[in-house]
Deep mutational scan, measured.
Amino acid sequence: NQASVVANQLIPINVALTLVMMRSEVVTPVGIPAEDIPRLVSMQVNRAVPLGTTLMPDMVKGYA
């Protein structure tokens, strides 16, 4: 099963993503693939993302 990107903490809106904010985990439904974590660094989410939430492509500005 493919690992997805999961919030490692509350990720506020309009804050640049850092490695420490994200972890990889096998979850259902599948979200952004874990291998895209380096690409996500410095991008921003378009809504607050609670701890443990799977990041979906539509949550990250400029990802999709």
Rank of each mutant, 00 (worst) to 15 (best):
I11R: 02
A34Q: 05
V30S: 10
L10S: 12
V26T: 11
T18P: 00
Q9F: 08
L51H: 10
V60Y: 01
G52N: 14
L55H: 02
E35F: 10
G52L: 03
Q9M: 13
Y63A: 04
G62W: 07
I11N: 00
G31C: 03
G62M: 07
D36W: 10
G52A: 06
V15Y: 15
V30G: 09
P57Q: 09
I37G: 04
D58F: 14
S4R: 01
M22P: 00
R23N: 08
S4F: 02
V41I: 11
M59D: 14
A64M: 11
N14D: 13
P29S: 04
A16V: 08
K61F: 14
S42C: 06
M56V: 08
I37E: 01
L55P: 01
A64K: 05
M59L: 05
M56R: 11
V5D: 01
Y63I: 04
L51Q: 12
V5P: 01
G31E: 01
P57T: 06
P57W: 11
G52I: 03
I37A: 09
M21F: 04
V49Q: 02
D36Y: 12
L19V: 14
S24T: 15
T54M: 03
P12Q: 08
E35A: 13
V41A: 05
V60T: 00
T18F: 03
P29Y: 03
M22S: 00
T54C: 05
V49F: 03
T18H: 05
V60A: 01
Y63P: 04
V15N: 10
I37W: 03
G52Y: 04
P33T: 08
P38I: 09
A7K: 02
L40A: 00
L17P: 00
E25G: 12
I13A: 11
A7Y: 02
P12I: 03
P50L: 07
V30A: 13
E35N: 13
L55Q: 01
E25T: 07
V45Y: 03
A34S: 15
T18A: 09
N1W: 09
V6P: 01
M43I: 04
Q9N: 07
P38Q: 11
T54P: 06
A3L: 11
P33F: 10
R47Q: 14
E35Y: 11
A48C: 07
L10R: 10
L51M: 15
V60N: 01
V15L: 06
S4L: 01
P12H: 09
R39G: 09
M22Q: 00
V6G: 01
L17E: 00
M56L: 09
L10M: 15
S24R: 14
V45S: 08
L10F: 13
N8H: 09
S4V: 02
Q44S: 11
M21L: 04
V15F: 09
L55F: 12
R47C: 07
T28A: 11
L51C: 06
M59K: 00
M43A: 07
N46M: 09
R47A: 09
L10N: 14
V15K: 12
G31Y: 02
S42D: 12
A16F: 08
M22V: 07
A7C: 04
A48G: 07
M21N: 07
V60Q: 01
V41L: 12
E25M: 12
V20W: 15
I32P: 01
A7W: 03
S24H: 08
Q44N: 10
L10I: 13
I13H: 10
M43Q: 11
I32D: 01
V5W: 02
A34P: 06
V15E: 13
R39V: 10
G31M: 02
P50S: 10
V41Q: 06
I37M: 15
P50C: 06
Q2R: 14
V45D: 00
K61W: 12
L51T: 14
M21Y: 05
A48M: 13
L40K: 00
A34I: 06
R47I: 10
R39H: 13
P33S: 06
L40S: 00
R47S: 10
M21I: 03
N46C: 06
E35K: 15
N46F: 10
L55I: 14
N1A: 14
N8L: 06
S4N: 01
M22L: 10
M22G: 01
V6I: 14
P12N: 13
A7R: 02
M56G: 04
P33H: 09
T53S: 08
L10H: 14
E25N: 08
Y63D: 03
A48R: 10
I11H: 00
L17R: 00
P33V: 08
I11E: 00
V27A: 06
R47G: 07
P33D: 06
V15A: 13
I32Q: 00
M43L: 08
V5N: 02
L55M: 12
V6Q: 03
R47K: 15
N14M: 07
P29V: 06
E25L: 08
V27Q: 04
G62C: 07
P29G: 03
V41K: 06
V30W: 09
V5R: 00
I11M: 05
T28R: 10
V15T: 15
M59V: 09
A3W: 11
E25A: 15
T53E: 09
N1E: 12
R39C: 06
V49W: 03
V27F: 02
Q9K: 12
D36S: 10
A16K: 11
Q2S: 11
M43V: 04
N46R: 09
V20M: 12
Q44T: 15
V20F: 15
R23C: 05
N46D: 08
L55K: 01
G31T: 02
S42R: 08
